[in-house]
């Protein structure tokens, strides 16, 4: 049985902090956003539990996008960066051993995906995805290249700021999160209809990775820091039995 401290439900998600389902400026959301209110559900075992992963599920090199698709001895083109940070919960406790997955365009803004037809060139040495498990302190790191901006069909002259997609599984199905990180100083961030689905500028700030000179490798690789916060859980100060008996 578990050695985890006994904990209760996840804190309710602050839906005004997250993007609204529908945004007129992000056109695809208009026909894909539910119209009815979500039905609020108190957590049960179905929401508090979630899949558990181990080091047998992934390879140790899966977090190195500079090498995980490159020919031997070759490297992808682009700014070499380390992307690192911690996964914490809303109580500021680390979330250890959780699966973090990323995907991104290459340095010319092109995705290795059969549906992407952008003019930017594919890089034969870059796949564009990686995955890792956080360590006991909730820390994770990847090595990759900085992605390029690219145009997309929304308004005729919309360009996505350089971004990396980040998926975190968490410890319970209710913690599941997918988001995107942006890079400090990019003037496209403020113009992006997808960024602007988030109503609060303080929430957008949480998505901006910061240049981290202390983590760079001199003469080799720059570094950006991106911390991720998942939903926290109540302490069971008074018994609120989820499973009865």
């Amino acid at each position: 049985m578990s050695t985890l401290p006994e904990q209760g439900e996840f804190y309710s998600r602050d839906r005004r902090w997250h993007p609204a389902a529908m945004s007129q400026d992000y056109k695809t959301s208009v026909t894909r956003a539910p119209q009815y209110p979500l039905i609020s559900l108190e957590n049960t075992a179905s929401e508090i539990t979630g899949p558990v992963f181990g080091h047998n599920d992934i390879a140790a090199t899966d977090n190195d996008l500079l090498t995980n698709f490159a020919q031997p001895g070759e490297s992808p083109i682009g700014e070499r960066i380390i992307l690192h940070g911690r996964v914490l919960d809303e109580n500021a406790r680390p979330v250890p051993n959780t699966l973090v997955e990323i995907w991104q365009a290459n340095a010319s803004g092109r995705y290795r995906h059969k549906k992407d037809t952008y003019l930017g060139a594919l890089d034969p040495n870059f796949g564009g995805c990686g995955r890792t498990l956080t360590d006991e302190h909730g820390c994770y790191h990847f090595r990759t290249v900085k992605p390029g901006a690219y145009p997309w069909r929304n308004r005729v002259n919309d360009w996505r700021p350089a971004h990396i997609h980040v998926s975190v599984v968490g410890t319970g199905f209710a913690q599941r999160l997918i988001t995107q990180l942006y890079f400090e100083g990019d003037p496209l961030i403020a113009r992006c209809p997808i960024v602007n689905t988030i109503p609060d500028p303080a929430a957008v700030e949480m998505l901006i990775a910061r240049l981290d000179m202390n983590a760079t490798i001199p003469l080799d690789t720059m570094a950006y820091r991106f911390d991720i916060v998942l939903r926290g859980r109540r302490s069971t100060l008074f018994e609120n039995r989820l499973e009865g008996n």
Partner: peptide
């Protein structure tokens, strides 16, 4: 308390990361 990291769409190329 910390605030949860806000969500963003998975986009059209989610397969690259989760089902390459």
């Amino acid at each position: 308390y910390l605030k949860e990291t806000p969500s963003q769409t998975a986009g059209p190329y989610v397969h690259i990361g989760l089902a390459p």
